[in-house]
Design a protein around this nucleic acid. Structure first.
Lengths: 222, 222
DNA sequence: TCACACATTAATGCATGCATTACTAAATGC
DNA sequence: GCATTTAGTAATGCATGCATTAATGTGTGA
């Protein structure tokens, strides 16, 4: 309905994001508009439009004569991002609990939790990571605040850049799913404060872990 | 240092934002790129770039053959926005308290509160509004989280669109400054939880008022 | 009279070209 | 030999033109 036709600019946006996540455009590296346009097989105009959007999302910076700089994420940045996610996701948990969703509306959330359990049992970190994303995304969806969703999507993008590396370095998130289940139960039972506080504690803990890993390894991220 | 030279695109961005706030481009109205470019005395390219940025900030929508649509803000939207502001500003208050800022660092915050008192005494709503903005902006600044600052700036823009009208309709915010002082004192004393909870309650109250006014008058905003 | 199809109009998306400007390097003066 | 200035180069910001495509209006047939 309100769909836009797939323009070259949108293709460039998706492709550039992909290149950043894949590490083809590493953090801190500089690239000229012309080069990127050539790589993407289109003219500078749509590429430039995509770059402006990505700049607005905080993934890169346009420096007038020095090219496009992919922004690195310092431990401090990651802490800031996690703090935002903590607040907004906790709000979502609270609102989701207040909304009194039916069991069927909560099915996706529960499925994500189940999938995380399976992934942990199988030792499949990638599958766990994917299911974890799904859980957080669905949580925000159930919260029903569109602006929160937009912001969390943006920030999650940045977290995803770091996750690939931190996943291998951090302890297996075996206990994390207990928290998820508690949050789920609280939402199901309509216990707003419980949902909020539980999720908040969960996210604070996750933040400590990630930031700890980043600092320990002196990493600035991709 | 990291300043960008003032390009036409940035001028267009500022000017368009101004036109939206001033009501020259009313909520729900449609405008063609060509017309806007003509009004701004520049070619379509920089105007288009500015429009893309504004779309990213949620102020408008680019509809392929129907022109640029200025997005209205419903009471629901305003409630969503206030919820985000509540969470992120409360976080800022907490972090500001934890940071242990010196008295001189807190001077601007206190000045904003004093100015609000003066404005209320003088019955000057515009001055009050300006000082209130300053208080919230400074609070976020003291919180020290750059992403929070960016998000709050964006959301505040949207609130400002509604404020001009709600100001005249809502009760005089005489008591509101007591809250501000309590938050200030808590930050000064390093009482993080107190700062957080006080500010949270303050914002929740403000949300009720504004959303109430919007719903009562069935307003969709500029 | 209504519906469908075709043609015309016009806005957008993109490519391209040009002018401006910043960076580099070389040359001259001290 | 070093510093300063100037010339050359190259990337960006913007204007412009074109092609595509959607919307509107007209005409014809049932």
């Amino acid at each position: 309905m309100t769909e836009k036709p797939i323009s070259n600019a949108l293709r460039a946006l998706a492709k550039l994001r992909e290149m950043i996540f894949a590490g083809d455009l590493p953090a801190g590296s500089n690239h000229l508009e012309t080069e990127l346009a050539a790589q993407l097989n289109m003219s500078r105009t749509p590429v430039r439009e995509a770059l402006l959007m990505l700049e607005g999302q905080g993934l890169l910076e346009l420096q007038p004569r020095k090219g496009v700089r992919i922004l690195p994420i310092s431990p401090r940045d990651m802490a800031d991002i996690y703090d935002v996610l903590t607040e907004l996701e906790s709000l979502s948990a609270e609102q989701a609990a207040k909304a009194g969703h039916s069991d069927s509306a909560l099915a996706l959330l529960e499925a994500a939790i189940d999938d995380m359990d399976k992934a942990i049992a199988a030792g499949d970190l990638d599958a766990w990571s994917e299911a974890d994303d799904r859980f957080h995304k669905e949580l925000v969806q159930l919260g029903g605040n569109g602006r929160v969703k937009a912001i969390v999507d943006m920030m999650s993008d940045q977290v995803r850049r770091a996750r690939a590396i931190t996943l291998a370095l951090r302890p297996l998130p075996t206990k994390s799913n207990d928290d998820h289940r508690k949050v789920f139960q609280a939402i199901k039972d309509g216990q707003a404060n419980m949902a909020r506080d539980t999720h908040r504690a969960h996210r604070c803990h996750a933040k400590e872990i990630i930031v700890g890993v980043l600092e320990k390894h002196r990493l600035r991220f991709i």
